[in-house]
């Protein structure tokens, strides 16, 4: 489920803007690090971090979109992908500069400590909450995309950018908003994941790769596909780590390769326009 929370922002941005944001992992990482700073210094509260960190990341995403990404819209999708790739490199070192390269961690908030028993198995409460948050998020995004006026605009933007302009909707505003929401979700994912996965250098690349795998397996731009794929990859990774620890990553990538060859558009993907 964590995977889903992280990936859905990426999926949203890709599905609507057509930009494969390779800096998504970095935004996630910054979310986690900002949360760390907040919890370990002035506020001590996980809940403050949960709200503040995604906002910080969202502002960052706003700046990126307005200053850098905007200037590449006319250059085509590949340039945008490459731009975010460059950003990922930059953020990697900035994070190292600010937070060092030690492994850090965030405490699970006291109210969510402990564990509960489901079907005779013990689960940490925090993980159950994450699953709940993930499900709510999935439902929320689905609802937003399919049931609201906003969703309609966004779906129209997918198929025809000119038409949207003709409807009197500011397409640039839509793009910016989506990118910022993507950043917000990345930051949120970072905070939520931090107590479970910890903070370490290179975390963003590991997460990014896993998120990309999920994205591709699920089908680019499909929220439902992303959900299915995160469960699939999450399960495979966990069991893989347990049963054959040496090859768990290998398994995940093999799954992606098989799925791509079997269904080149992902499990639930629609045809995506090629560059």
């Amino acid at each position: 489920m964590l995977l889903f929370i992280i990936t859905c922002g990426l999926s949203l941005v890709f599905g609507i803007l057509g930009v494969l944001n390779l800096a998504h992992g970095s935004l996630y990482m910054i979310g986690a690090y900002v949360a760390f700073s907040i919890t370990s210094t002035f506020s001590q509260s996980f809940w403050t971090a949960l709200i503040a960190a995604p906002l910080v990341v969202a502002v960052l995403a706003l700046i990126i979109e307005r200053t850098l990404l905007k200037s590449t819209y006319h250059l085509g999708h590949l340039s945008q992908v490459l731009l975010t790739f460059g950003l990922a490199y930059v953020f990697h070192d900035i994070a190292k500069l600010i937070w060092g390269s030690n492994v850090l961690s965030i405490q699970v908030p006291p109210s969510l400590e402990g564990s509960i028993i489901v079907f005779g198995q013990t689960f940490p409460l925090y993980r159950i909450v994450i699953i709940g948050v993930g499900v709510c998020l999935a439902f929320g995004l689905w609802w937003m995309q399919n049931k609201t006026r906003w969703g309609a605009i966004v779906r129209a933007g997918l198929s025809d950018k000119q038409m949207i302009g003709a409807l009197g909707v500011n397409i640039h505003l839509v793009f910016t908003t989506i990118f910022v929401i993507g950043g917000l979700l990345a930051g949120f994912g970072g905070v939520v994941a931090a107590p479970v996965l910890g903070l370490y250098p290179d975390m963003e690349f590991q997460t990014l790769i896993l998120a990309l795998v999920v994205l591709v397996i699920g089908g680019l731009g499909s929220i439902a596909g992303t959900l299915v794929a995160s469960v699939l990859v999450g399960t495979l990774e966990t069991f893989g780590r347990f049963l054959f620890p040496e090859v768990s990553m290998f398994l995940v990538f093999a799954l992606m390769a098989v799925i791509l060859v079997w269904r080149p558009n992902g499990l639930l993907g629609k045809q995506v326009a090629e560059e």
Partner: peptide, 20 residues
């Protein structure tokens, strides 16, 4: 069998498999 972003991803996947 694939092209565009999927090609990018699949090559990445294979190289990570070699890496692991």
């Amino acid at each position: 069998k694939v092209s565009g972003f999927y090609f990018l991803m699949l090559t990445l996947a294979f190289s990570q498999m070699v890496y692991s």
